[in-house]
């Protein structure tokens, strides 16, 4: 099962490579990682999705905690949370298919952000399930390229996701 970690880190040079390097050298499986600033200057937040069982996850958390630049880690897998990911898909689109594709995009509340003579670029946001579903539908037309941001997540209600 996928686990989501909200990690507060100091915004220092090399912090991303410290975190990424830890995963690769300890053999932990990282599914996605997304980094961005927080409301507090000098502190960034990483949302890391990992596919690990519990004992390994415990090691992941402890090892991350050991990094000096890591301030706080919260496992928000079990918390009621909203999680989103943004995906850009470049799909093969001959003029006669554009209408159909546009309908799919609208069903998923996506947006067409670029059209060329034989392709379209579609932007869609959502959770895993939704992104997989639209991907499956668009495969029929031929997907040329996909870019995903990695998942970001936030706990519902007034509680801060990092546990503050």
């Amino acid at each position: 099962m996928k686990k989501i970690l909200a990690v507060l880190v100091e915004d220092k040079p090399g912090v991303l490579s410290r975190v990424a390097g830890l995963f690769s050298r300890r053999g932990f499986n990282i599914d996605s990682i997304a980094v961005g600033e927080t409301t507090e200057p000098g502190i960034s937040r990483m949302t890391i999705t990992v596919e690990e069982d519990s004992p390994t996850l415990e090691q992941v958390v402890k090892q991350l905690n050991k990094l000096i630049n890591v301030i706080k880690i919260s496992n928000i897998t079990e918390d009621p949370a909203v999680s989103r990911e943004l995906m850009l898909i470049k799909v093969q689109a001959e003029p006669q298919n554009r209408g159909e594709i546009q309908q799919i995009v609208e069903t998923f509340r996506g947006k067409t952000v670029d059209v060329s003579p034989d392709s379209m670029v579609i932007e869609v946001t959502g959770d895993d399930e939704k992104l997989e579903a639209i991907k499956l539908l668009l495969q029929y037309y031929g997907i040329k390229e996909i870019v995903r941001t990695g998942k970001i997540a936030m706990v519902r209600g007034s509680k801060n996701s990092a546990g503050n």
Binding site: P13, G14, S17, R18, G21, R25, I68
Partner: peptide
């Protein structure tokens, strides 16, 4: 050297 010693130091600085 900070890159090289990343996995073998407790912490490092440039």
């Amino acid at each position: 050297i900070t890159g090289i010693t990343l996995p073998i130091t407790k912490h490092n600085y440039l």
